[in-house]
Simulated scan of single mutants.
Amino acid sequence: MEHRHGEYKVLGGKLVVADFDVVDERLADVSVSGDFFLEPDSALGEINAGLTGLPVDSSAKEIAAAVEAALDPEASMLGFSPEAVAVAVRRALAKATGWGDHQWEIIKPQALTTEVNVALDEVLTEEVGAGRRNPALRIWEWKEPSVVIGSFQSLRNEVDPEGARKHGVKIVRRISGGGAMFMEGGNCITYSLYLPQTLVDGLSFVDSYPFLDTWVMASLEEMGIKAWYQPLNDIATDAGKIGGAAQKRLGGGGMVHHVTMSYDIDADKMLEVLRVGKEKLSDKGTTSAKKRVDPLRRQTGLTREQIIDTMINTFTTRYGAVESTVTSEEMAKATERVTTKFGTEEWLARVP
């Protein structure tokens, strides 16, 4: 018999703790606790009973469903949910992980071509998924003005080729979905998180975005900015949108979560290069893409370098991260991936 203990702090909610034994590959003597609110009191016993006997290989969805099925429809869960209980149980079984279960690394900015940057996202995600590299935060730097379009976006619908040629803008397609990013050196801040999918085990796609950027919100608050997620993937403040996120989960168990935040964007140039339609703006409460881009420079009064340093310090303090670099082997893989994939017309125009 093995005793297991798992904890999960709900984002914006309460702590959920799962204690149980494992007998014959099933959960036994289950006790769920925490600082949440639950009515009526008897509902806690219903949750424990619903979890008792579940196979240890139950998925997060199956665990949450067992909790929901065990509860009276009139029961009220405040500050947590069946999904939160599932995360705590999965963590107790070492099938889900928390930030503190990993040694995090930080890869500081290194000026690269945009194709190499997007190729590194794929390579480093694969390396983390395979267990050959620790999870890491990488801050981007790039050599040329660029537009990075989402994996599923239409090239002709998103980019004005004449505007791109006029301003010498490189067009690259990344592996994640989401919208186009207009990026000039010094006008935005882009970072990528490479992590095992166990860190978001049991979380919905919607919940995983703010969960992975909790440290960013804390860093922005330190700089005087109150920011929040505007579902699904926009980071916003009272003054407007300041950034957007995207994710890609690979078959090997790794995933990338990356964000671009505006620092001092040239909105006029952006609108000459990007084709931003009215339909895209219809749920944003505005009719102008230019109004949607609110630079961090104006809101903080800090240099781009100061903002990046604050972000790195926040991440380091929270997660005990250590400095790292891209290895020569990883860079060689990324360079090869540019030749075979990210630098090819076939990849760029895969959605014409």
Rank of each mutant, 00 (worst) to 15 (best):
G243Q: 04
L271Q: 11
T340P: 09
L54G: 09
E329V: 12
Y319W: 13
D160T: 03
L348V: 15
G277M: 05
P145F: 04
L220V: 00
C188T: 00
W215P: 06
A236S: 06
G178C: 08
K108F: 08
P109F: 05
G150H: 04
D101T: 07
M77W: 11
N157C: 00
T113D: 13
E105Y: 02
R173V: 12
N233M: 09
K226S: 15
D294G: 01
L232G: 00
R249C: 01
Q299T: 04
E330C: 08
P55I: 01
P231M: 03
D101I: 06
S76W: 11
A69I: 04
I47N: 02
G285L: 08
R90P: 00
M217N: 07
L11S: 11
G343Y: 07
A236K: 10
A84S: 15
A136F: 06
E25S: 12
E68W: 15
E46Q: 13
R337P: 01
S59G: 13
A227C: 07
S324P: 07
A180V: 12
V169P: 07
S154T: 08
T198C: 01
R133H: 15
V30N: 05
L212F: 08
V351N: 15
E68V: 03
H258F: 04
I107G: 11
L199Y: 12
A332C: 02
M261N: 05
G301D: 03
S324V: 01
V32T: 04
A227N: 05
V259S: 05
K280Y: 11
G178E: 08
N233R: 08
Y194T: 10
Q306L: 02
T198R: 12
F80D: 14
R90W: 01
P145Q: 05
S282A: 12
D29R: 15
N117Q: 05
Q103P: 10
P210T: 10
T327Y: 11
M311D: 08
V259H: 03
E346C: 01
E279R: 10
Q110C: 10
H167N: 09
T97V: 02
L296M: 07
T125E: 03
A66S: 15
E184D: 13
F205N: 11
L220W: 00
N134L: 03
H258P: 00
E122C: 08
F37C: 02
T97G: 06
L212G: 08
N48R: 07
Q299C: 01
V259K: 02
Y229F: 15
S151L: 04
E329C: 00
G243K: 05
D201K: 05
E68M: 09
R318Y: 02
K241T: 01
